[in-house]
């Protein structure tokens, strides 16, 4: 892929300092629309900080973010949400004692046309929840069951389904399979691949390089707060990625 690629979101010379530490040190990287882009890098390379800049949690100290080519300022998570950027955090952000459908529609509840009272349109939310999960091939016993009774993979899938439903433009996943077993990881990867087929733009942070090779179109390598490489996954090997991450191979991004 060349620099001509249409980026959905692009970071230019991004700097984020925490006191004396420069977590991002002039990072420039773009994330193409309709692709799954993986961000890889060693601990402390700036992966989480980059995600926090993109989700409005930490506004960058210097540098610029472009959204569809336009400069934007993400001053709060709400600002990112308003652009259709949704994040699946490691702790998933699900409420255990609420039902699956309540979690899918959390703070986006569908209401009946009764003024002021905010009366829930439960049948519609339950029906649409079934459609959402069914469309993504996510199996849960019932959308009316509480999330507490779901397996780790099911919970992860529900969190991803929620992000995909509301993330009109970009879905960010932070280590989506870190806490999962082999079978559940496979199910979640299948879900991510189906998102790619549907043209959802996904940004995924992963330590698992084999997973990156399986699910991503493009991989961006971070080292010491900079993006040191951006490659189509088809053009790199696992060994080469390790070299880029650790710095034994260096090349211009």
């Amino acid at each position: 892929m060349t620099s001509e690629t249409k980026y959905l979101i692009e970071a230019r010379d991004l700097v984020k300092s925490f006191d004396a530490v420069r977590a991002l040190d002039g990072l420039t990287a773009g994330f193409a629309e309709g692709e799954v882009t993986a961000i890889v890098g060693d601990n402390g390379a700036g992966k989480s900080t980059l995600v926090r800049c993109l989700t409005g949690v930490h506004p960058p100290t210097e540098g610029q973010l472009l959204f569809r080519g336009e400069p934007i300022r993400l001053s709060s998570p709400q600002a990112a949400r308003d652009l259709g950027i949704e994040t699946v955090y490691q702790d998933l952000g699900l409420i255990d004692d609420l039902a699956v459908w309540q979690n899918l529609f959390l703070n986006r509840e569908l209401l009946r046309p009764v003024p002021l009272l905010g009366v829930l349109d439960r049948p519609r939310m339950i029906r649409e929840s079934r459609d959402i999960l069914g469309g993504l091939d996510v199996n849960v016993p019932s959308v009316r069951t509480t999330v507490r009774r779901m397996s780790g993979g099911q919970r992860q899938s529900i969190a991803i389904a929620r992000a995909v439903t509301w993330g009109r433009s970009l879905v960010i996943m932070d280590e989506p399979t870190a806490a999962l077993g082999v079978r559940e990881t496979a199910a979640v990867e299948k879900l991510i691949l189906s998102l790619r087929d549907r043209g959802v733009t996904v940004l995924i942070i992963s330590h698992d390089l084999e997973q990156v090779m399986r699910v991503a179109d493009t991989v961006v390598v971070l080292r010491r707060g900079r993006a040191v490489a951006r490659r189509p996954v088809a053009d790199v090997t696992g060994d080469r990625l390790v070299g880029l991450i650790t710095g034994t191979i260096s090349e211009a991004a």
């Binding site: 952000g93 309540q102 959390l106 703070n107 829930l120």
Partner: peptide, 24 residues
């Protein structure tokens, strides 16, 4: 159990971080 406000009450009690994360 039947209003948006109630869902938000249950959500805040069930996990205030998650509730905050969803913009409640």
């Amino acid at each position: 159990f039947r209003t948006r406000a109630g869902t938000h009450l249950l959500a805040v009690g069930g996990g205030s971080d998650a509730a905050l994360g969803s913009g409640i």
